[in-house]
Design a protein around this nucleic acid. Structure first.
Lengths: 203, 203
DNA sequence: TGCATTCTTGCACTTTGTGTAGTTTCATGA
DNA sequence: TCATGAAACTACACAAAGTGCAAGAATGCA
């Protein structure tokens, strides 16, 4: 057995709390929902919530570290002779693929949509998401320096990564605000990505 | 009299609270300092703190709205025939000029340094700063669309702005982390800006 | 079964932030 | 100069987030 009963149960409560939280946030709004209410709805003690998640916000950002690790692995796994734009493109494709896959394998796709809406609209969650995105940027930049030691210095790498992620984020949010349908949304993100990459392809 | 005594006193207490806060944050750390302690040190009631600032974080982001308004005014005041890169460059120069001026005219330059260090290092403050930066990006993008109606659409504008600000932020933070001296720091920021702008100059 | 580990729970406590009502201070007009 | 209203400050009660600790319940293992 490669997962003990104890570990399984812990993971189950954790998941139960997270899903209950998203559901309640979706129904009543983030600020209007208290941790005590979430815990009650999931039938656990309030303290149990904080045993699993360091803060109320964190219940919405559970898998982030693992997802980031995947992206960093793409960078670290630069193929021999692979150019910087090509590597970044491969990372971007990986990001998209993972996001779509997650939407498919999710038990309740409705929760995914609620989740996205929450992170886009609630200020506290937006701030947290931006913070984590920025931390990821720093890690990506550091890895890039390791992988392109002759071509990139820390400042240059940080500028490149900031430019690319900034453009993608900006385009994505603008598309969201316009209420573009899903296909247009992906196209808009791609536009942002391509725009930022132009400055790398024409040195 | 173009400022009543009442307004003057209000501004004074507000300023006193803000400076006391930065000083205490610098001495004991942000999380280790309670609002009650700040209020006591400034000799006002705890509630008075929250009358002036909606949250503990906000005491460090007082002038932001005014500064943002200045940048937006630069965009809105596009000169006839001025190209997008030129306008963005003018906005960037304005940003630098204001930042340096503020450092000079500040009563206590030591507080400025403490302030910068706090915003760069404390997660809660970084997140807030990033959030506000992102809100500013959206406003800049909207203004750009108004000013370049034939050349920019909402998504394209957001991508451009995100790319530029992302690159500058990334370069600035990397420079900070490297502990570069002040002159190198400005040069690094400029590198980020120029990098992002290359994609606009070569269509 | 017995024992150690780990997860959960309950409880007391601090801190941030809100609502409200009362007090002081200031501006203004008779 | 004094009365009056508005604005700022204060005091107090309260809700919610989050922490620390000790006790209880479930699990793993011998």
């Amino acid at each position: 057995m490669d997962e003990s009963r104890r570990e399984r149960k812990k993971r189950q409560t954790r998941r139960l709390i997270a899903e209950t939280a998203i559901r309640l946030f979706g129904e009543r709004g983030y600020e209007q929902t208290t941790v005590a209410e979430i815990a009650a709805a999931a039938d656990v003690a309030t303290k149990t919530f904080f045993n699993h998640f360091p803060s109320k916000e964190d219940v919405l950002f559970t898998g982030t570290r693992e997802r980031n690790a995947v992206l960093l692995a793409v960078i670290a796994g630069r193929r021999p002779g692979e150019s910087l734009p090509d590597l970044l493109t491969r990372m971007y494709e990986k990001l998209l693929a993972d996001y779509r896959a997650e939407g498919v394998e999710a038990e309740d796709p409705e929760l995914m949509k609620t989740y996205t809406r929450l992170v886009m609209t609630v200020p506290a969650l937006r701030a947290k998401a931006l913070y984590m995105s920025f931390e990821l940027q720093k890690e990506i930049a550091e890895t890039l320096v390791k992988v392109y030691p002759d071509e990139l210095d820390p400042v240059g790498a940080a500028a490149v990564v900031g430019s690319v992620i900034g453009a993608v984020q900006g385009a994505a949010l603008a598309s969201m605000d316009l209420g573009e349908p899903e296909e247009r949304f992906w196209a808009s993100m791609r536009r942002g990505f391509d725009l930022a990459l132009r400055s790398l392809r024409t040195p």
